[in-house]
């Protein structure tokens, strides 16, 4: 039982990280029908930004964190204004190819401009393990789970309870109708790209002490989050979260109870099963065919 709870904590703390990146996929898909294959790089770049501010320039943690989020937001804004807006009329395939290209550019650009090495990042929280009877867990995992949950709840409230959130939902449900209601869909799309980048930036700060900082970490996180979004449901924010947790828990439990050798394979099998049985994802909603 103690073992099970420990695995649960480990799985959830990874899963929620995948989930928060996956939410970005869902937000973009819903509002602009774009799939951003540069999603992982939107995590990688803020990681380096955080290293630049916090480690190289030795700015204290919280100001660095805020500046990183600000930088992420600006990156998302430029990403939408300079690239997505021009390509959006070309359809999803054009966007996919363009974002793939951008991700390669950012990845190898970072490798050449900065370093191919993995960079150190300190723990954000105490590393002294907490023991509760047989259960031993690390405060870092708990803090990650709690803080990311808070961020997701705030995001959820913004979307469900504010006017702008309503407008986002409106755009997600029907762009045409939203336009006819006078909603400025272009503003909403820009806003969602900024929001997505900020979320990814947040994930970056929490992921950095766990993964360290490396130019190609984006592929790993991007793929995990993409798979999570598909497993959970690409058209539902809670789907992304469910998907992220499913991936995190599946990895951990498969590794613990079956074998560690094929932990990634189990996730892919899970993906296949979901695609065969419920292609819209665990909590996704079927989209009407156009």
């Amino acid at each position: 039982m103690a073992n099970f709870i420990q695995l649960l904590i480990g799985g959830v703390s990874m899963g929620i990280l995948y989930g928060v990146v996956a939410i970005g996929f869902v937000l973009l898909w819903q509002t602009s029908q774009t799939i951003n294959f540069g999603q992982g790089e939107l995590v990688m770049v803020p990681m380096f930004l955080m290293v630049a501010l916090h480690i190289v320039l030795k700015i204290p943690f919280w100001p660095s964190f805020v500046l990183t989020l600000l930088g992420s937001g600006i990156m998302g804004y430029l990403f939408e204004r300079l690239m997505i807006r021009k390509l959006l009329p070309g359809g999803v395939l054009v966007i996919v190819i363009a974002t793939l290209g951008l991700s390669g550019f950012l990845r190898y650009g970072m490798q050449i401009a900065w370093t191919p090495q993995t960079l150190f990042f300190p723990h954000l929280f105490s590393t002294k393990p907490i023991e509760l009877g047989d259960i031993i867990f690390s405060p870092e995992d708990i803090w990650n789970i709690v803080l990311i949950s808070v961020i997701i709840i705030v995001l959820h409230l913004c979307i469900k309870r504010t006017k702008l959130g309503m407008a986002m939902q409106a755009v997600a449900q029907s762009r045409e109708t939203a336009e006819l209601m006078g909603i400025n869909v272009r503003h909403i799309i820009t806003l969602v790209f900024v929001l997505n980048s900020v979320l990814a930036g947040t994930a970056a700060v929490f992921a950095a002490p766990i993964f360290f900082v490396r130019y190609d970490i984006g592929i790993f996180l991007g793929v995990k989050a993409f798979v999570a979004a598909i497993i959970g449901g690409f058209n539902q924010i809670r789907g992304a979260l469910v998907g992220g947790l499913t991936v995190g828990l599946a990895e951990t439990f498969a590794a613990a109870y079956i074998t560690t050798a094929y932990r990634d394979a189990f996730v892919m099998i899970l993906l296949l099963v979901v695609l065969l049985i419920k292609p819209e994802g665990i909590v996704g909603i079927k989209e009407e065919a156009y």
Binding site: Q6, L7, G10, G11, M14, A254, T260
Partner: peptide
């Protein structure tokens, strides 16, 4: 990045 499964073993 997560070794909780290995550590439990």
């Amino acid at each position: 990045a997560d070794y909780s499964a290995e550590f439990s073993t």
